Simulated scan of single mutants.
Amino acid sequence: ERYIMLSSIFALQPDKWHIDGLDQILDYTIAKYFADNYLVNQSGLKYTILQPTNLTEEEGTDKISLDVTGVTSNPIPDVAKTLAEILKHDNTIGKVIMMNSDDTPIDAASASVK
């Protein structure tokens, strides 16, 4: 009934694929573009797509931002916790959510999605 997909930052915005950091993973971003588009436009599923910035192997902070303007980083544990938290919030259904590390607790950020 519910589908949560991990994607990549700006995957649905080809005009941003030239940004430093994204230009190095262009094939991956293109694949995510098609997967995200299918989920949004053809699947018929209750979806949420999470588009984090670069994943890093660091300790999680349990704090994020959903106001992403560039390519920064996300500790992998924070991305995993955000994916799990999304399931608790119906307000995230039908949304594409971009995230990066910052200072808002993950549960509060997830609850604030409009």
Rank of each mutant, 00 (worst) to 15 (best):
T29K: 00
T56G: 04
I25N: 06
E1A: 12
M98E: 10
G21C: 07
D36G: 03
D107W: 13
N91P: 02
T29R: 00
A108G: 11
G70C: 13
T69E: 15
L87S: 10
Y38K: 03
T48R: 02
K81E: 12
K95G: 05
K63V: 04
E85P: 01
L6K: 01
L39R: 03
L6S: 09
T82L: 15
D90R: 09
A11H: 01
A111M: 06
A31G: 10
F34G: 08
P75T: 04
K32Q: 11
D67S: 10
D27M: 14
T72S: 11
Y47G: 13
D67G: 07
T61W: 07
V68L: 04
Q13R: 04
D102M: 05
Y38S: 12
N54I: 11
G44N: 13
G60D: 05
F34P: 01
H89C: 09
L55T: 02
N100C: 11
D78F: 05
H89Q: 14
M99F: 05
K63W: 08
L6M: 12
W17Y: 09
A108P: 02
H89S: 07
I9N: 01
F10Y: 13
V113R: 00
I106P: 00
N91L: 06
V71C: 06
H18M: 12
L26Y: 11
G21S: 14
G94F: 06
A108Y: 13
S112H: 10
A31W: 04
P52Q: 08
G60F: 06
D36I: 00
P105W: 11
S7P: 00
Q42V: 07
P77C: 13
T69F: 14
I9W: 00
A109L: 12
N91W: 06
I4Q: 05
M98R: 03
I97L: 12
G21T: 13
W17T: 01
G21H: 12
T61N: 09
D78R: 07
G70P: 01
G44E: 15
T48M: 14
S65P: 03
